[in-house]
Design a binder for these strands. Structure first.
Lengths: 350, 350
DNA sequence: AGGCTGGATGATACCGGTGTCAACAATGCA
DNA sequence: TGCATTGTTGACACCGGTATCATCCAGCCT
C-alpha cells in the first residue's frame, strides 16, 4: 500500500499508541470510516460501526488530540488564566472546570502570570497565540484589567470571566446577586441589633465589590439610626488589617464589620484580637466567599458562601458552547447565602 | 507552486495566525529553512537567519505547538495531577511550574481528579494517554497511591512527584531534610522549656510525615525528662481538631503541640480556644508548610516554611531534563526553616 | 431494462510543522 | 585547473487525524 521505504531514524517511539490506521486494518475498513465512527457520523452501517467499535476497544485506541486538533484547526484546549497570589479557591475552580472539560472532550491548560496591567495582557495574548487554546477562562483579579477583554476579542479568542457580575467587555455568564448578598449581610447585622457598621471594601475597580458595597449600604440606609463607616481594601490580608485599624481607632467604633472577602476578614479578626476586642461579644465580623479559611479561623468566620466549583463549571459550559457554536446555556444564577458562624452575635449593650 | 485548486469550505478560520509558509514567502526561502531557524539549527547563514527572523517578527509568527507536536511526536505538554481538596499551596506550585515551562517552551495542562485509589490510577493513565503529555508532575496525596508510579512507568510516561522525600517508585527529585525539620521543631520547643510534647502526625502512608515524626521524636528523646504523646492525623482540619481533643483531654496534657501541617494546626488552635487554653501562654502550637494560612490565623502560627514554588520549579526542571534526555540536574535540597510567630512561647510554670 | 436516487465507503488532499536526503555553491587542497 | 569537503538550502515524505469528492451498490421508478 504505502511506499516500502525503510522507516527513518529507527523507532524511538515511547508510547506505541495505536493509530487510526491500526484500527482500520483490524476492522477491515478505511481510516475514513473509522474517523466517521469517532465523530459519531450517522452515515455508517450499524454492523460496520460495531466492528470498528470492537476494534477500538480491543486496541485501546484513543484518537490523538493533537492530530485531530491539527486537522480540525481547533486545539480542544481551554486555557485558564490566573494571577491571584492568595488563591484559596483555585482548587475548587479547577475541579469545576475539569469536571466539564473531561466530559466534553477538552483539556485544561493553565497559565499563571506573575505580571499585571498591560504586561499581563501581552502575556495572556502571547499564551493564547502560542498554545492556540480554543477559549480562555479568566479569573479575578486579572479579569478586571482594563483592556483585556478587548485585546482577547481582537485576537479572536473566545473568553469568559469567572466573575459574579458582567465585567467590562466580558459576556455576563455568571449573574450572582452580589448586591442582594451585601444586603443580606447588612440585614443579618441589623437584625442582631448592630447600628454602627464598618465596611472593608474590595477594589473599587471590581464591579462585584461595588455591588456588594451598594447592597450593604443600601440596606443599612433603610434603618434610620444605622450608619456605615467605609474603608478601602484590596482583597489582601494586610489591607484588611489596615482597614480594621482605621475603623476601630476612634471612640465611636463600629460594632460590626463586613469585609469583602474572607482574607481581609481574617485581618480584621487579627486586629480585633490585638486590641483586646472580643469577637463576637464586642465586635461582629462577616467575610465573603465561604472559603475553607472561614472554617479554619478561630472563631469560625461568618461568611457568604459562593459555590465556586459550580460557578466555574457554568463558565466552562458557556465557553464551550460559544466555541462550538451551539446554543448558549442560560446565565447561571448561583445562590449566595450567608452562613452564620461564630463571629457574629448580638450588638453589645453599651 | 501549489495546486491552484479553489480553497475548500471557505475560510471560517478564526485566528488567521500566520504559518511557517507565510514566513518563508516573506523571507524568500523555503519553509525548511524557516524551521531551522525556529529550532536554532546552526546550519543557517547569518544573513538568511536575520532575514527570516525579521519576517517572523513582522508577521508576529508563532509556530503552532500542535503541528510541531505532531511532527516531533511530542506534545510539549506537561501534566499536573492533583486531588487535594485543601490545596492551600496549589497556586504557588503552579506558579513555580509555569515559570519553568514558559522558559522551556512547554505548557502546563492540569488534571484534577475527584477519585482515589485504583480508580484514580486509571483516571490518571487515561488522562496521560488522551492528552499525550510528555511528562507528569504528581502532587500529594495522590502521589502516595500505591502502584501509581509503576503504572506510569508501564505506560512509559515520565513522571516526577513533588514530594519532599523519595517516594516508592518515583525518582528522588526533591530531597528536603524532613527529619531535620522535625528535629528543629522539637528543639525549638525544648529550648522554650517544654517537656510534655504532643504530636499530630500526618498520614503514616506518607514518607515525609514519617520522617518528620522520626526527627521530632528523636530530638525529644535526647532530653531526659521530655515525653511525646502521639496522635494520628490525615492532614485534614477535622482530624487536627480530633487529635487536639485527644491530646488535651487528660490531666497531664502537653504544653506544646506539633501538627504535621498548618491545616491541622489550625484545628488544634480552635480546640485550644474552645477549652479556654491561652496560646502561647498555656499551650504552644507549631504547624508545617508555612502557608499563607499560618499568617492569617490569630495568633499567627509558628510554622516550618517550605518554598513550594522553588520545589515545583525544581521538579519541573528535572522532568524536562528527563524528557529531553539531557543531563539531570542535581537533586534539589530546599531549606526548611522554622519561622517563629505568635503561637510558641515559654512553657507555663505550673 | 435502463436511469435515477441515496446510503455506505474509500481515495486523496490537507492541517502546519519536522526529518531525511539530495542538490548546489563556495572553499581548501593537490 | 580538478576534485573532495564543507556549508546552505530545498524537495519531499511524514506525523495522525478530518474534509471533499468520487465511487460503488442497492432499491425504485417509468
Amino acid at each position: 500500500m504505502t511506499d516500502p521505504s525503510p522507516l527513518p531514524g529507527a523507532d524511538h517511539a515511547r508510547h506505541a499508541e495505536p493509530t487510526i490506521e491500526d484500527v482500520a486494518a483490524a476492522a477491515g475498513v478505511s481510516i475514513r470510516t473509522v474517523s466517521r465512527v469517532l465523530n459519531k457520523s450517522p452515515k455508517v452501517n450499524a454492523q460496520t460501526r460495531e466492528r470498528i467499535e470492537a476494534a477500538i476497544a480491543a486496541l485501546h485506541f484513543r484518537p490523538s488530540l493533537r492530530a485531530r486538533a491539527l486537522a480540525m484547526r481547533r486545539s480542544f484546549l481551554i486555557g485558564l488564566i490566573h494571577n491571584d497570589r492568595n488563591a484559596l479557591v483555585l482548587d475548587s475552580i479547577q475541579r469545576g472546570i475539569v469536571s466539564v472539560t473531561a466530559e466534553q472532550g477538552y483539556e485544561l491548560i493553565v497559565h499563571s502570570t506573575p505580571l499585571a496591567g498591560d504586561a499581563a495582557i501581552a502575556d495572556v495574548i502571547g499564551f493564547a497565540g502560542r498554545s492556540r487554546v480554543d477559549g480562555l477562562i479568566v479569573l479575578p483579579p486579572i479579569s478586571g484589567v482594563a483592556g483585556l477583554a478587548g485585546a482577547l476579542d481582537g485576537a479572536q479568542v473566545p473568553a469568559v470571566a469567572v466573575s459574579s457580575v458582567p465585567l467590562d467587555g466580558f459576556a455576563g455568564v455568571i449573574l450572582s446577586d452580589e448586591r442582594g448578598a451585601g444586603a443580606q449581610v447588612a440585614r443579618h447585622l441589623l437584625d442582631l441589633g448592630h447600628r454602627r457598621l464598618g465596611l472593608v471594601n474590595g477594589p473599587t475597580t471590581m464591579a462585584s465589590a461595588r455591588e456588594r458595597r451598594a447592597g450593604f449600604i443600601g440596606e443599612a440606609a433603610g434603618t434610620a439610626d444605622a450608619s456605615v463607616a467605609e474603608t478601602a481594601g484590596d482583597y489582601g490580608f494586610a489591607s484588611g488589617m489596615a482597614a480594621a485599624q482605621a475603623l476601630l481607632a476612634g471612640p465611636d467604633r463600629p460594632t460590626a464589620i463586613f469585609a469583602a472577602n474572607d482574607i481581609m476578614a481574617a485581618g480584621v479578626l487579627k486586629v480585633a484580637a490585638r486590641m483586646g476586642l472580643g469577637v463576637p461579644d464586642q465586635l461582629s465580623v462577616v467575610g465573603f466567599d465561604g472559603s475553607m479559611l472561614a472554617q479554619m479561623l478561630t472563631p469560625a468566620l461568618t461568611s457568604v458562601l459562593r459555590p465556586f466549583d459550580a460557578i466555574a463549571a457554568a463558565a466552562t459550559r458557556h465557553l464551550i458552547a460559544r466555541i462550538e457554536g451551539t446554543a448558549l446555556p442560560a446565565p447561571f444564577h448561583p445562590t449566595l447565602a450567608i452562613v452564620p458562624a461564630e463571629t457574629t452575635g448580638p450588638a453589645p449593650k453599651s
